[in-house]
Simulated assay, not measured.
Amino acid sequence: MANCYAIVDRQLRKNLAAEFDMTLVRFDILATLDRHPDGLSMSDLSAELFVTAGNISGIVRDLKEQKLVTTSTAQTDRRSSIVSLTDSGRACAAKLNAAHQAWVEDLLGGMSQSQSMQLMELLGAVRKQLAARGLS
């Protein structure tokens, strides 16, 4: 499992860097925010990515400088920031998501659709079990 992950991860990282001058972490942030049109708090974003907020705060700051995301104060907790995609960020995420999907389909294209779905379900179950044990 680790070997397969490493191969796919390495190729996706290369593709993102070569075609978009983008890191995988930046892509993950943009893709996650794209799935949450109302934005996410830093803590929710870090939970979605299974990393600490400190790990992504600098990247979010950089993405803000690039005008791909905005931050605003949460209405329910003024100490918390909500991160959202800008229009430019949404357009960038759409391009990245399409390319990412094409790369994954190319890498795993020999698998049937049912095999792919089964793999995603099984990996999701493993991820949930590990998260339930406090591992991320």
Score class of each variant (00 low, 15 high):
126 V>I: 14
29 I>N: 02
17 A>S: 13
72 S>N: 09
135 L>K: 11
82 I>G: 02
87 D>F: 10
102 A>K: 12
76 T>D: 15
86 T>I: 11
24 L>K: 09
65 E>A: 09
20 F>C: 00
75 Q>E: 15
8 V>M: 05
18 A>Y: 06
99 A>C: 09
61 R>H: 07
129 Q>G: 10
15 N>Q: 10
84 S>L: 11
24 L>S: 08
15 N>E: 12
52 T>H: 00
120 M>K: 14
43 S>D: 13
68 L>S: 04
116 S>A: 11
113 Q>K: 15
81 S>V: 09
23 T>A: 04
92 C>P: 01
68 L>G: 03
120 M>G: 10
86 T>L: 10
78 R>W: 06
104 V>S: 06
63 L>M: 10
16 L>S: 03
23 T>E: 06
53 A>I: 00
66 Q>H: 02
21 D>G: 06
134 G>A: 13
65 E>M: 05
10 R>I: 06
80 S>R: 13
122 L>S: 12
118 Q>D: 12
9 D>W: 14
105 E>C: 08
34 D>M: 00
56 I>A: 03
23 T>S: 15
109 G>Q: 10
129 Q>R: 15
6 A>E: 14
40 L>F: 03
116 S>Y: 01
88 S>L: 15
92 C>L: 12
55 N>P: 00
130 L>A: 13
52 T>F: 00
86 T>C: 11
102 A>E: 14
1 M>K: 06
119 L>R: 14
113 Q>H: 14
25 V>L: 14
17 A>T: 07
40 L>Y: 04
98 A>T: 13
87 D>A: 15
110 G>Y: 04
107 L>T: 08
8 V>C: 03
104 V>L: 12
57 S>C: 04
46 S>K: 02
96 L>Y: 06
110 G>K: 03
55 N>G: 04
5 Y>E: 06
78 R>L: 10
106 D>L: 03
24 L>I: 05
58 G>T: 05
93 A>F: 07
102 A>L: 11
38 D>T: 09
96 L>P: 04
64 K>H: 07
7 I>N: 03
136 S>Q: 09
32 T>L: 01
18 A>R: 13
112 S>D: 08
124 G>D: 09
135 L>Q: 12
106 D>I: 01
21 D>T: 08
79 R>D: 13
128 K>I: 12
32 T>I: 03
123 L>F: 13
41 S>R: 09
121 E>W: 12
24 L>D: 05
28 D>V: 00
104 V>R: 02
89 G>A: 06
67 K>E: 15
36 H>W: 03
43 S>F: 02
124 G>A: 11
30 L>W: 02
31 A>N: 07
91 A>E: 15
12 L>A: 08
86 T>A: 11
89 G>W: 03
136 S>A: 12
48 E>K: 07
65 E>K: 05
